[in-house]
């Protein structure tokens, strides 16, 4: 007689796996990747491949040294690599990008226990470390389509740092200066709609994040057009759709996610308006990452039919 499997119920499981979720995020990032190659040339693709590869290698080696089960097949390292690459200027030396990957995977992710345990978004923290370490390289922006002009790289400023306002169409299609994957709002929106449609992310965070920036920007810029430009500029779309929806580092309930999104939007506008830096999306997300456990604490939903907590009960 063959042995029977004895397991606790339930005996059926849904087809959704961690790997499938990560794969769908990778697919959702592809429109932005294609746009980046169109805007910034082949080097954008090479940068992305290098980041993905080094993230996977760092994860594999790290798990090996820590004598832990290998987790590279869950594809989360690939997602981190892609997101980090998207947050870098196309002209950044490759070795710097690899340092960023090391910080993201080894220090931020694996040192805290691996997937799901990290308190900060690895890609964002990797970017911030690079920003502080190699500030001038990280703020040198190649002109869109620079690769078509042979010879020297022409640099430009990002729309947020620029004196003259950018064309909205440029912002929408991404033909402006900026990080590899952040400029093309259209491509990022396509990815976001895809992820919402297949229920990988909840639209709550991006909507509250972008909505908050939009509303506040009406006041800071004084015009609707300025507010539209504000939500299309910088890393907002990339951050709101792909980084502020990172499961591990954001609140778990819908209510918590709304608070998280609003908080991100608020901090972003504060940094953009009053800070010394032109852009604040990554800092706002990192800050809210740190606040996430606190938000979770205060947004525990009321259980169905739960009795009210006794006030002043016996201790």
């Amino acid at each position: 007689m063959s042995k029977l499997i004895i397991e606790p119920s339930p005996h059926i499981k849904s087809g959704v796996t961690t790997q499938k979720i990560m794969l769908s995020v990778i697919i959702a990032l592809c429109p932005a990747l294609i746009a980046s190659v169109w805007i910034f040339g082949l080097r954008a693709l090479i940068m992305t491949v290098i980041c993905c590869t080094s993230c996977v290698i760092f994860e594999w080696v790290c798990r090996k040294i820590m004598k832990r089960s290998n987790t590279i097949s869950d594809l989360s390292a690939v997602v981190t690599g892609m997101l980090l690459a998207f947050n870098l200027p196309v002209t950044l030396p490759f070795y710097m990008a690899i340092i960023g990957c090391f910080v993201a995977i080894v220090i931020v992710k694996q040192f805290f226990g691996g997937l799901g345990q990290n308190f900060a978004n690895p890609a964002i923290t990797g970017r911030i470390v690079l920003m502080l370490s190699f500030t001038s390289y990280m703020t040198t922006w190649a002109e869109p389509f620079y690769y078509k002009n042979a010879g020297e790289i022409v640099t430009t400023s990002t729309p947020l740092a620029s004196e003259t306002p950018a064309q909205l169409s440029d912002l929408f299609f991404g033909t402006t200066g900026g990080c590899i994957g952040e400029t093309c709002a259209l491509a990022l929106l396509i990815g976001g709609v895809f992820l919402v449609a297949i229920r990988v992310i909840s639209p709550v965070t991006p909507i509250s994040f972008i909505g908050t920036v939009f509303v506040l920007s009406i006041f800071t810029t004084g015009s609707l057009e300025g507010a539209v430009a504000a939500i299309l500029s910088g890393g907002l779309m990339l951050g709101a759709i792909f980084m502020a929806t990172d499961y591990a580092t954001t609140p778990i309930t819908a209510k918590g996610r709304i608070i998280f999104g609003i908080g991100c939007g608020l901090v972003t506008v504060l940094i953009r308006t009053f800070g010394s830096m032109p852009e604040g999306v990554s800092y706002s997300i990192l800050l809210m990452n740190i606040l996430s456990p606190l938000i979770d604490r205060f947004t525990v939903p009321k259980a169905f039919g739960a009795a009210k907590e006794k006030k002043g009960g016996k201790k």
Partner: peptide, 9 residues
């Protein structure tokens, strides 16, 4: 079972 990714499902 693998690590919880805190997806909230």
């Amino acid at each position: 079972p693998s690590a919880c990714i805190r997806c909230g499902r």
